[in-house]
Design a protein around this nucleic acid. Structure first.
Lengths: 123, 123
DNA sequence: CGACAATACATGCACATGCAAAGGATGCAA
DNA sequence: TTGCATCCTTTGCATGTGCATGTATTGTCG
């Protein structure tokens, strides 16, 4: 079960390469919808959440971003009118990010593109 | 096709997660040797190259970086005295990056750390 | 009640990166 | 030689990210 250093390095290299290839392809494809990968992931998470809304911290769990980066992504989405921020009534520290109709529309348009890229690159 | 889409998304998510997990672990581990991931990769490539030297463009092929990013990585390594740049004699447009003794020493110290992290995280 | 820790999110700052353009050396043709 | 294309590397700039910190709110313990 002991794997040599070379084998490990090779596997790691392959993983990095696959990740980079798909990431670049996704970026290019989503750019046509004026979305970045992080933006799309947030939209996807909101779209599948009950009531189409979600607390920031909850988003932070599913998206691979630091808390600050997430805050800025949501800020960018809000600027474009794709999501809006609402205060949480029971805990006024919390904030709900919720999908707007425009956000859902943008997401639905981008989703096939996203799937196609994955289908082409994941085997 | 909705099922297929979900499966693809799930696979992609798993890949991203694995990549992120290992990347973070590597960063933390290599930080103890004052090296970033890109820096380590460049040292590794040079260490395994004949004469411990390599053209910039050749490095660019193995490391996943743009030309500009690679140039800066080598610049950082040069500042630390781990690498030095030499003109290529037959084609004076080219530049060789070559490993210094200090660079080799740093690399040899960091290599076990690198392997250990991969062994712990790659199955 | 009052002070202090914990939580949730936003922001200042530094840094690595990619893209596009510049910089510098060489080769080639007239 | 002069002029221009080519090759390789570096640099200017904009962007996205993480870390550390700031601000507001909530929870806890004496």
């Amino acid at each position: 079960m002991a794997k040599t250093e070379a084998v490990l390095a090779e596997r790691w290299h392959a993983l990095v390469e696959q990740h980079a290839r798909i990431t670049i392809a996704l970026e290019r494809a989503l750019a046509e919808h004026d979305l970045g990968i992080s933006e799309f992931e947030v939209l996807a998470e909101l779209a599948s959440a009950p009531e189409n809304e979600c607390r920031m911290q909850q988003l932070s769990g599913t998206v691979h971003l630091s808390q600050s980066a997430l805050s800025r992504v949501v800020g960018r989405l809000e600027e474009q009118g794709l999501v809006c921020r609402n205060m949480c009534k029971d805990d006024r520290r919390g904030i709900f990010a919720s999908l707007t109709p425009a956000g859902r529309e943008r997401y639905e348009h981008a989703r096939p593109t996203h799937s196609t890229v994955l289908a082409q690159n994941l085997r």
